[in-house]
Amino acid sequence: MHPAPPPFIRIENLTLGYDRHPAVHHLSGDIPAGALVAVIGPNGAGKSTLLKGLAGELRPIGGRIVMPGLPPGALAYLPQRGEIDHSFPVSVFDVVAMGLWREVGAFGGLSRTQRQRVRDALAAVGMSGFEARPIGSLSGGQLQRARFARLMLQDAPLILLDEPFAAIDSRTVDDLVQLILGWHREGRTVLTVVHDLEQVRRHFPTCLLLSREPVAFGPTAQVLTPDMLARARRLSEAFDDDAPECHIELPPTAVSPTDEHAHHHNHASHRH
């Protein structure tokens, strides 16, 4: 047996939140390189917040995230609601080509090969022939396909997708899932927020169930049990404006996926 590879992402006692209210509360765990993780949980469970934290858009209010093997800028993040200005006069080709930023930077021109890669990426998402169309003329599903094409060109070892299938028809979802599985085969680490549990069972080997508190993290079959899901629902309690300060001090050692359950119990007994 080889020794286990070092974790690609190490989450140490991480708390993320807004106005001191935690949205992700004391999460610890290691995500190995090449993992394909579905992040699931009820609405308001902190799934998007976790991805924001991993993408560096939100400063932790406790604990930390360590990604030792990841060069800066080598992370591709697809937020749920992008800030895309649909009326801006740019073509689909230009938008997808933005994914090449790490290669061409602010000034570089696109080589013939790079242009071909943009067209290939569009073809891979089933959007051949849309190159010259203005971005504002795309439907919701087409736009999501174009965003995936841009993501492909970013060629990032770590990919974070926040509800990529929201309001997307089933055919497009199937295509996009195939792309994600392709990235997984290429050895990229992918974290995706998903709501369709069938989808998760079928395609995602690993699962992180959040409900503000971490509920379970591990092989999908062990996470998606009626027990765990019921616990997740119970935990999604209301936002309490006058919540007292949290004084849990966990040792900042990462908890392995199998210990996660125990950690939760431990934590619950400490709770206010």
């Binding site: 993408a55 858009e57 992008g82 800030e83 200005d85 801006f88 933005m98 602010a106």
Partner: peptide
């Protein structure tokens, strides 16, 4: 001329530009 590409991206999709560069 120098700012053109970053500026277009800053106008079109500022979150994306923030994510991939310091421009």
């Amino acid at each position: 001329a120098i700012l053109f590409r970053p500026l277009v991206m800053e106008c079109f999709d500022p979150a994306f530009l923030r994510g991939i560069s310091r421009w």
